[in-house]
Computed example of a mutant assay.
Amino acid sequence: MANKEHPDFVSGRGAASANVCTRFGLATREADGDWRDHVETLDGPSVKLRTTVTEELPRTILSFNQSPDIPFDRSINAYRGCEHGCVYCFARPTHAYHDLSPGLDFETKLFAKPNAAQLLRETLAKPKYRPRPIAMGTNTDPYQPIERDYTITRQLLKVCLDARHPVTITTKSDRVLRDIDLLEEMARQNLVAVAISVTSMDAALSAKLEPRCAAPAKRLAALSELVRAGVPVHCSVSPVIPAITDEFMEEIVARAGKIRVQSAGWIPLRLPHEVAPLFREWLNIHYPDRAGKVMSIVRSIRGGRDNDPDFFTRMRPRGVWADLFRARFNLARKKADIGNTKFELDFSRFRRPELGGQMRLI
């Protein structure tokens, strides 16, 4: 449903518009006289923006990096695009590489990789492969809504469990509990750690900011259930958005402490490439009264820019506001008796998978 003051805004989605990318191709689709140019005339205006999923068959599934700012060197993304629709998602610009919008296209035109598990099995079976923890959920959420039907994440976990290969998972969904049987067994073998991101404690705010994510209470409940199952868990208060979500920092940490979460951390808002104008647009729609203040603080912790893309500093905010957030978080974590645990997963018992699609019985 359109907003009267912002007619392009689509209710139930994070981005307010398509925000068509101009970095890597055609900025807009040129009219060529086919039915798509007259679809609204023929069928009437669209009242609902639907999600579509395209299946793709990549040749490789592991992505490797040498970034000095992140604690893993390899990752898997079972999906491209994410229906959660988090307006602040730093992965949105990846859709631009395919001449798709980092705005509404990112959360409505999704891609799934149904052969991911087979590709992973083949990769792990290679004689030269050396195991290190695989990060899942670093770009798009492995437990976004379409995982319910595709179960690609579950298939990947089965391969890792069979190979005794360590995995870290980051998600904003309580759908992770559907795989608690696998996670519990992997935890017994020190093969998994799960991070769940909790942005605020206000369900109404969450519905605007990350419209198709699990509600904050459900994410905390999922953390609690994982703790009871013996799975190592991390509560990520991220992103911290100045003057929007930072007020919830202490409450989130306190609640995480009550359910005995072993680790907690915070990540400040990042606005790379097209994310910055998308976020500004979102602010002007939902919080026009404080939009200027929010962006002023963001720039103050990013060296005067909307975003700091530089290695070594992009994940480390600077300045008075950054110091204040850091001090508040550290004090909250101390009061909640939560450590800053770095989970050391076991890759010493790695065994190469059997090829041919068969799992081991023992």
Rank of each mutant, 00 (worst) to 15 (best):
A31W: 05
S206T: 15
A15V: 06
N77D: 08
N307M: 07
A31M: 08
P131Q: 01
F279H: 04
R175C: 11
R13E: 10
S17P: 10
I301G: 08
S46T: 14
L355K: 08
I297T: 10
A163S: 07
L42D: 15
D43R: 13
V167H: 00
I169C: 01
A254H: 07
E147Y: 03
L104C: 03
W282C: 05
G85R: 04
T52G: 08
N65V: 06
I338G: 01
E147P: 02
V320I: 15
R154D: 07
D99F: 04
T22D: 15
P131G: 02
R36E: 08
R290N: 12
C213K: 05
A203Q: 13
L182V: 00
I169T: 00
R349C: 10
L205H: 02
M186V: 00
D323K: 13
N307P: 05
L100V: 06
R255Y: 06
I252H: 00
G14V: 03
E247V: 14
Q358E: 15
R255T: 06
L100W: 04
P239A: 06
E107V: 01
R255K: 10
A332C: 02
R148G: 13
P317Y: 09
S11N: 13
N190P: 09
D179P: 00
L191A: 02
K293D: 14
R29S: 13
H95Q: 14
Q144D: 06
A193H: 00
W266K: 04
V20G: 12
L110M: 03
N77M: 05
K126C: 07
I244H: 03
T153S: 02
R148E: 14
T60G: 08
